[in-house]
Simulated scan of single mutants.
Amino acid sequence: MKITNIKMVLESSIIVGTIDIENGIIVSIDEHCDADVHCIDGMGAWLLPGLIELHTDNLEKYFTPRPKVSWPPFSAMAAHDAQLIGSGITTVLDAVAIGDVRDGGTRQDYLDTMIETLVESERRGVNRCEHLLHIRCELPHSSTYGLAERYLALPQVQMVSLMDHSPGQRQFVNIDKYYEYYQGKYGLTENEMKAYETEQRDLSAQWSDKNRRAIVELCHQRGIPMASHDDATQSHVEESHELGLVLAEFPTTVKAAKRSHQLGLHVLMGAPNVVRGGSHSGNVAAHELAAMGVLDVLSSDYFPLSLLDSVFKLADDQRNELDLPNAVKLATLNPANALGLYDRGSIKVGKRADLILVEQVEGQAYVKRAWRKGQLVY
């Protein structure tokens, strides 16, 4: 299969030409357009590597689209998969949380169903993206380690993140933001919120450090890459480095991001942060880190299309020095390399033909086609 008349975004350049794919692998890249009628005409659109998503909570929205509403699992999975491939994501680590039971038990109730459906839908070959697992370990809970021990045995698990959302910690160093977020999310009164704050502080003191160290040991035994989450201080970062973590998810301060980058942790920020121009939690803006040269990876987090949008937005942003090839790496090659997925992430001879054809209309990027392992999937 050949695709021609395309602007190919390579690792360090953009060329107009033709790409040839055989058996799901890129076999040649030529800087000329092919007149063969059997070629797919890209009509001058961008050809990018398929995007790689490391942290999305999108899956559970389809399994429980409204409070107390459960959706048939394979229908939920199909809808989730369709949204991701339509957003240009060809490899996704679906993030599922363990240890967090505050939502009336919702996450825990659907955990097995979501994971089993992901595994079975991949086995059946019905997914258009490749779906892998990211286990989010909410550290301040008695159940977290036991659940981690159970789920980390699955071969689909490619990443683990260590989280503590208790007040005064990491994402919620600012206690006002903590109250604003959780009162808005759960509709708690002031007294209920104060009781919830006390409960969460106690749980963190009892379980967080113990669970962190035990789960890190488990991950090292099984060779699973790990990420910190919402590091706020240099001491947080240095602890993450000492524990052998490879990613720093959503650092909340410039100091934490800079120190993570210096120590070799890949700094991951939310693509919605880029699109919206800042953090919804009042933390550091992703464009600030891009301007400082310490932004390594983007994640769509809660809005899948934001990943593609953010790539073009950063490439157009005069406040940083990112050109389009380097902006694209934030959502392709860098996340692939962080997890050791070296067979994908760039348009290069010998790599997997995970590709997306993208057209921009009045500044908005649209995915026109997507291929995974050289097969048209969108």
Score class of each variant (00 low, 15 high):
M1Q: 09
T4N: 08
I15R: 00
G17N: 02
I19S: 00
V27W: 02
I40T: 14
W46L: 04
L54K: 07
E60Q: 10
F74W: 11
A78G: 10
S87F: 05
V96D: 08
D100Q: 12
T106D: 09
R107N: 12
L111Q: 12
D112V: 10
V119N: 09
E120I: 05
E122R: 12
H134I: 02
I135H: 05
H141L: 04
G146N: 12
A148C: 15
L152H: 07
A153D: 14
P155R: 01
S161G: 10
S161V: 02
S166C: 07
Q171V: 08
F172L: 09
G187F: 08
E192H: 05
T198S: 14
R201K: 14
L218M: 15
L218Y: 03
P225V: 09
S235E: 15
V237R: 01
E238F: 03
S240V: 04
L245P: 07
L247T: 14
A256T: 09
V275M: 04
G277P: 11
S279Y: 06
A286T: 11
H287C: 14
E288N: 06
A290V: 05
M292T: 01
V294A: 07
S299V: 11
S306L: 13
S310L: 01
S310Q: 08
K313Y: 10
L314Q: 01
D317A: 08
L322P: 03
N334M: 08
A336C: 08
L339M: 11
Y342T: 15
R344Q: 13
I347D: 00
K351H: 08
L355G: 03
V358F: 02
E359V: 10
E362C: 14
K368P: 07
R369A: 12
R372H: 04
